[in-house]
Write a protein that binds this DNA or RNA. Structure first.
Lengths: 195, 195
DNA sequence: CGTCGATTTCTAGCAGCGCTAGGGACAAGA
DNA sequence: TCTTGTCCCTAGCGCTGCTAGAAATCGACG
């Protein structure tokens, strides 16, 4: 009984260890450096142990993605609630989003660019993903015009931010003009004369 | 002399063959299926031959990207010049861009998402890339407000399209609402009351 | 206390990847 | 015919994600 419990606890602990190691390794050296052998070394177990916890490397990455998304959702919420007006809130959330992407590129990639089979845009999507989207939704809501599709509008805002971030991070947009582009995007997104 | 020329011609021919094979394989089965072994099989030469033409797999992908970008630039231009008003032209270019991404996902990926060390956003960027960007620029120009930074504005428009496309294609945005999102994006991008 | 049975973990290996060293075939010139 | 130089292929390196099967460990029971 207690033995069983202890084992489960230890297993859960080790699982956390794997996810943490993957995350730290990715943040330090990028996802290319995260190989199953390297990860096994890091946690001081052999490779097959990883597969007794996760279906494969993709599942480990998905776990990191969920963790990262919780962090993102928190930062978006903080930015939104700290802002004064609705307009400022939208801008603040946009800035927080792109700032997250730049500060934590590995996390951003595993959530939003690498394919890692997490369910998105469905009820089965992890809570963290829905929370993050919810933050965007709440920021977009007040500036929506009468009768606009809120979901689609939020998705559109999100996509704009995502595009700015990914093109910049892949070297396709010059880094130095990021703030200007972001300002233009947010400015064009808010209907003129909205408070 | 003539022998030399014939050899050079044959070499150039084989190089074209490699790029075409890579492109077709990628379009048919995705870039994961494009391995150097598979490519060598396809062109009926051994693997090392590829490396006598290109520095590596990345260089082959870059060549495909340039080809694909020429195609994209052509489609953007056609869309732009066929439109009536400036506003319609911007919308048409946006639709043409996302349509290209959906119709030729492998080409789109190699140009805009996979990293393939092509110089972007510099004078050394291949002409095809500059042409495609130029088409966007010409579509954005007429709807820009007084004194707006044209380059940054175009980049922002591009980023929005790119975000919509990549999030949708990776399954993060539901496919069915694409048209609605695209309409919202373009609508918000054009300042109210612009002709 | 010693042995059995089950669970856990490791060693070793598979098939694939991008890439390359070195040798053999083949054609052009003496 | 023999040499020279070019071209191309075979074979292999070190790496990847992943897994089968042996080994070791630990709890339970006689």
């Amino acid at each position: 009984m207690t033995i069983q419990k202890r084992r489960e606890r230890e297993r859960a602990e080790r699982e956390r260890l794997i996810v943490t190691a993957a995350r730290e390794l990715a943040e330090a050296e990028g996802w290319d450096a995260v190989t199953t052998r390297r990860l096994a070394d890091e946690i001081e177990y052999s490779q097959p142990v990883l597969y007794s916890h996760f279906k494969g490397k993709g599942a480990i990455m998905a776990a990191v993605a969920v963790q990262g998304c919780e962090e993102l959702a928190g930062e978006l919420r903080a930015a939104r609630t700290a802002a004064g007006s609705a307009r400022e809130a939208l801008a603040a959330v946009g800035r927080a989003y792109t700032a997250f992407a730049r500060r934590r590129p590995a996390l951003y990639d595993v959530i939003f660019t690498l394919d890692v089979d997490l369910p998105f845009a469905t009820p089965e999507a992890p809570a963290a993903l829905q929370d993050a989207f919810g933050e965007l939704l709440q920021a977009v809501q007040p500036i929506a015009a009468e009768g606009e599709d809120m979901g689609a509008l939020t998705e559109t805002y999100w996509a704009g931010l995502h595009g700015l971030v990914t093109l910049m991070r892949s070297g396709r947009l010059p880094e130095e003009a990021h703030e200007r582009r972001l300002g233009l995007f947010i400015g064009h997104f808010v209907p003129q004369g909205t408070d």
